[in-house]
């Protein structure tokens, strides 16, 4: 029987949230993933990145997005900022690697310039985290950077 696993990372943006995991094993191309959702009023932020088989066509808003890092266009941070301002952001961002400069910018911009936006961001969770967590598992993020992965709650779709 699978058991609860706990990981510890570095807190980039603090917060507490429980959400369903959405896992990308490759880098998240922020522009390619969010652009359609932002442009055409998709409140569920369906991923439009054809190069990301893990995420393509999946809803990202409100999910615990687990990923190694973000990649691609330097509009990435701005796009993340807009997703937060429009309340279409993931519930949290959980990075296995150290956070990249674009995701960091998006997180900081949202934190400093927007009111009432919560998107906890944790990085440095390690490769084993990304190997273990699966889309559909329940994730609980604690303010101290603790991330609980609850495998018993896998949602099959």
């Amino acid at each position: 029987m699978a058991i609860l696993r706990i990981y510890h990372g570095r807190v980039i943006a603090p917060g507490e949230v429980t959400a369903e995991a959405l896992v990308s094993h490759g880098g998240l191309n922020t522009l390619a993933s969010f652009q359609k959702a932002l442009q055409f009023g998709d409140k569920k932020a369906t991923c439009g990145d054809q190069n990301n088989p893990d995420l393509y066509g999946r809803e990202m808003a409100g999910k615990a997005l687990c990923l190694p890092q973000t990649i691609g266009s330097t509009t990435g941070g701005l796009v993340l900022y807009c997703a937060c301002a429009m309340h279409r952001q993931p519930a949290c961002l959980l990075f296995s690697n150290p956070i990249d400069s674009l995701a960091a910018a998006g997180s900081v911009l949202a934190s400093v310039w927007l009111d009432n936006v919560k998107m906890p961001v944790i990085d440095c969770l390690g490769e084993e985290f990304l190997q273990y967590v699966q889309t559909g598992m329940e994730i609980a993020v604690k303010p101290d950077g603790k991330v609980e992965v609850r495998p018993g709650s896998v949602i099959i779709d």
């Binding site: 330097t74 509009t75 990435g76 941070g77 701005l78 796009v79 900022y81 990249d100 400069s101 674009l102 910018a105 998006g106 900081v108 911009l109």
Partner: peptide, 9 residues
């Protein structure tokens, strides 16, 4: 130059 994001630039 770092890979700055839009707005951060």
């Amino acid at each position: 130059c770092n890979r700055n994001s839009g707005i951060m630039d």
